[in-house]
């Protein structure tokens, strides 16, 4: 042996986990949902997704290389995930320039201006989505109908989302029973046969992704389950009080991005709390805000706003909600 002995502090072994592997697993977990959206929205879904991913990676490279003058870290895969999630949160008939502007906002403003990966307070994809929603309200809320417009991109036939139908109907004073025939059945909702953002529609595909993320230990159950449980319980109570004035809890869970929000958006590492207690509070907060916005707010859909608002509370949760230390309980009692 001629090489020098290496001396390093313990531990001398490593799990082999890396940022790029985690991101790769998230991408894999998003694939079932992507496949479903290709099936329902076809060409439009393909164009928007590719465009979004490519422009996110491209902007990240440009900003790191020429603006910040650091070694680009696009190989860590975080820009790919942002691009995918951004695409999944917009309608499949969104004009290309809006997608590019959205990507630029996600990477340039929401991520890089805060210091890049690990330092951004708000989920980049969601921040960009909200930015686009406010800047291009018409294009962002014209939802192509599934299957019918498979071979079309911007000229797709559009219709409202189930949540919008319910919201409009209830506003007019109709009862849920009266609206019932206009909205898809629960099974259809579960399978994703509805208008909506291209990746948010199919609950079953997103749940497959959830199982994969849990199996690969990329995320823990705390955030998704607490969001879903909170929405279920809250809307359930409202529904029990007045079944004619409120949609049922299953309907709420299966529509309008609850699944993608709970599984993929709220669990974003950088913008979620660091320990289980905080995660559960974070999840409950998102759940409550979502229902409040949906039922009493102006928008039919509230997950994006709820997550962004709770993102703002993450530093506070990290600071004041501490994990239970080993040996702490005993000290207090003894």
């Amino acid at each position: 042996m001629d090489s020098k002995l290496v001396v390093s502090p313990s531990p001398h072994v490593h799990s082999g986990e890396s940022t790029s592997r985690l991101m790769f697993n998230v991408v894999l977990a998003l694939m079932p949902a992507f496949a479903v959206s290709l099936y329902y929205f076809g060409l439009g879904a393909l164009i928007v997704t590719l465009l979004s991913v490519l422009s996110c990676v491209f902007f990240e490279y440009l900003i790191q290389k020429f603006l910040l003058k650091v070694t680009p870290t696009i190989s860590d895969g975080s820009a790919i995930v942002t691009g995918l999630l951004l695409a999944f949160n917009v309608p499949s008939n969104l004009p290309w320039y809006i997608v590019v502007v959205g990507s630029l906002f996600a990477i340039g403003v929401a991520k890089m201006s805060f210091g890049g990966l690990g330092s951004n307070p708000f989920n980049p994809a969601l921040a960009a989505r909200v930015f686009m929603l406010i800047s291009f309200p018409v294009q962002m809320t014209s939802w192509p109908l599934p299957i019918e417009s498979r071979l079309k991109y911007v000229d797709a036939i559009t219709g409202p989302t189930p949540l919008a139908i319910v919201k409009e109907g209830l506003k007019k004073g109709d009862t849920v029973t009266q609206i019932a025939d206009q909205i898809p059945t629960h099974m259809q909702l579960f399978m994703g046969v509805m208008g909506g953002s291209l990746g948010e529609i199919a609950a079953f595909a997103l749940l497959i992704g959830f199982v994969w993320l849990l199996y690969k230990k990329v995320i823990t159950w705390h955030i998704p389950i607490s969001i879903i449980a909170t929405i279920f319980v809250f809307t359930g109570i409202l529904w029990l009080i007045n079944p004619e004035g409120n949609a049922d809890p299953i309907f709420h869970l299966l529509t309008g991005g609850v699944m993608i929000g709970a599984i993929f958006m709220a669990t974003d590492y950088v913008t979620s709390p660091m320990h289980p207690k905080g995660m559960v509070i974070f999840g409950i907060g998102i759940g409550l805000l979502t229902v409040i916005i949906r039922v009493w707010g102006a928008y039919p859909e509230g997950v994006s706003f709820a997550i962004l608002i709770m993102n703002a509370f993450v530093p506070l949760l990290n600071r004041y909600v501490k994990p239970k230390r080993f040996g702490e309980e005993v000290k207090r009692n003894g």
């Binding site: 020098k4 002995l5 290496v6 001396v7 390093s8 502090p9």
Partner: peptide
């Protein structure tokens, strides 16, 4: 002469 290689913070 360096006889060892340090690998840590």
């Amino acid at each position: 002469k360096r006889v060892l290689e340090y690998d840590g913070a």
